[in-house]
Nucleic acid binder design. Structure first.
Lengths: 341, 341
DNA sequence: GGAAGCTATACATACGTATTCAGCACGTTA
DNA sequence: TAACGTGCTGAATACGTATGTATAGCTTCC
């Protein structure tokens, strides 16, 4: 019994043809006759033959693999991944598989060379970048990717795609929907919890939607109701403390992330404010946690499934040399207990 | 300007040595002199050279890649991945990276050949299997893996590792801790929500711990307090309906998963039962959702970080030809609002 | 009936690396 | 001075596949 795994030569011998014919038969080349193909397939089946992807990749000069790269701000728990990205994972894997690609995952923190590691080593034909946090710090690296002609897509703000190809949610519309919902509930002083610095372009867009909703409703927007905050629970809590410090009153709150909204809700409840009676709250993302929060959190749902699939498809189009348009994915308002009685 | 990416021959030419010397220098072979190595490294740096992993893998006959395979029961939303496995992902990626491996992810549903696809195609040197649901149906495939000598590890019940190498939480201890906690609160009629069929060996172990706690406390265990259920929210709800149908009274509840516990809590609350006053509830897993539930859910925490790292390390040991022992990971009780006032 | 055309297959080769083996220069020992 | 190790490097080659080119066997048509 030979322990060596079978090669295309073994199949060829068994099927009574040459090795190139085996290769052609298996790859569906029409030059090979139906009869021969059937014999080859049978032989391959019998020996449990699988094409060696290393050899195949070497010969074809591509790997049929995509690399997924998380480049988040380091968290206290370094092994934590942003839950929204995690929720994209399923549809990404599925989209990859249906296009015949494999998916490789990695973290940024571990290698300074991530912008070259994967494509340059031919382990992947393209890269999906998922970043959360300060975008600006990654700018030089994204530019390096563009310069080197690496295929990549990025989750972010498509309106702001100077650093490469981006796909993202329609953040402006999300901000508008959230704010309009609160205004329709009769709320007049709606706090905005989120940074509008260029480091968080998505948040800025959400803020623009917030502004538009105010304008269309003829409602005066109060500058002091906006508090800088990142997307964590902790920063949501801190934002409430900041509003309190300012002595700024508010009857509603729109946070740029569910986690920040949950943190804010907890801080409010600790101060004896009732939700939604005293303060109506709307978040952004629609994480699983939003549904479990108390009260359940009204939020702007990003379609993680569509997002994952869109990223993969755009990347594959790019690899295939097609032009594809940056895409803005629709978001929807999900009303729950935090904004209605 | 040549767009072709550099090979070891280009580095060799630039450094004034031969190609094999480049290979040796880069792989740290001590036969090459320090001086030569420095020249090679400088040349490689200058040309942004990266070893072609396809060629390297072909030559070395391994890929330095591990494949992560989810084989869950198909869910309504096919792109959903069990959140507990998702929470392992971070530490797995990290453990892989620190051992110089890459991580590939895939779903089972898409290929019937998963048991051969990865190793046989040389895309991966080993496989991590994460299954949730009916184990028995996968038994023949696991056996096929063992037969073919494929390197793999499996998350599950190490006491029951007839199908290959397993790592898992100490489920018996978890069941014991949960139940003892409830008994110490003075509860006497503790419902057990979870299937004990051989399809779910982990759940059976949790049930054994539940039994031991009763015995040690000298408490009578009531058969009719046990309800079959899988690990979903829906099945948790259904279990409450079943207990109601049986007319079986209970003042505490231990569910084999957080999701089932949360479903049960909701069903109880809809029936006007107060938690924890009327019914104290303990779950299992410590998902993020447990902390956000209302009331926050007391649960047995599985250490997802340790689990991910342990799986990867065991697999790599196996690939390196070392013997390694199946490992039982400790679990800890996290007391929250669902079991104390 | 023979050249042209077509189909199906075989032959030869290249992809980029890692490793075996041979060779060379140099220094050491008897 | 000859024999011999030692330390480094180069030449040759193999890994398994995919593809350009050549060829054998058939048909077709004037």
């Amino acid at each position: 019994m030979t322990q060596r795994r079978p090669t295309s030569f073994d199949i060829a011998a068994l099927a009574g043809v040459s090795q190139p014919t085996v290769s052609r038969a298996l790859s569906g080349n029409p030059a090979v006759s139906a009869d021969t193909r059937a014999r080859v397939l049978a032989a391959a089946e019998q020996l449990h033959y699988k094409v060696d992807k290393n050899a195949s990749g070497l010969r074809r000069q591509h790997s049929r693999t995509l690399a997924l790269l998380f480049f988040e701000d380091p968290t206290p728990d370094e092994t934590l991944i942003n839950p929204f990205y995690l929720s994209m994972l399923g549809s990404m894997v599925r989209a990859c598989a249906s296009h015949g690609y494999d998916l490789l995952i990695s973290f940024q923190q571990l290698s300074d060379d991530w912008h070259v590691d994967y494509e340059d080593s031919r382990k992947a034909d393209g890269i999906i970048l998922l970043g959360y946090g300060d975008y600006l710090q990654y700018r030089p690296r994204l530019e390096a990717l563009v310069r080197r002609g690496t295929h990549f897509v990025c989750w972010g703000n498509p309106n702001n795609s100077e650093y490469g190809f981006m796909i993202g949610s329609d953040n402006e519309s999300g901000g508008y929907q959230a704010t309009t919902h609160l205004i329709e509930l009769g709320r007049q002083r709606i706090a905005f919890i989120g940074s509008v610095s260029p480091a968080y372009p998505e948040f800025l867009d959400r803020y623009l939607g917030y502004n538009r909703a105010h304008e269309e409703a003829g409602l005066l927007r109060i500058e002091r109701l906006r508090v800088d905050a990142g997307p964590s629970e902790e920063e949501g809590r801190a934002a409430i403390a900041e509003l309190e410090r300012r002595g700024q009153d508010f009857d509603a709150l729109f946070a740029v992330s569910d986690l920040a909204a949950i943190g804010a809700m907890k801080a409010l409840q600790e101060r004896g404010r009732r939700i939604p009676e005293d303060v109506a709250v709307v978040g952004f993302d629609d994480l699983a946690a939003a549904g479990y929060a108390s009260p359940p959190l009204t939020t702007i749902a990003q379609d993680a499934r569509a997002a994952g699939a869109a990223l993969i498809e755009a990347l594959i189009e790019q690899i295939d040399g097609q032009e594809s348009e940056p895409r803005l994915l629709p978001v929807t308002l999900k009303v729950r207990g935090s904004s209605q009685v």
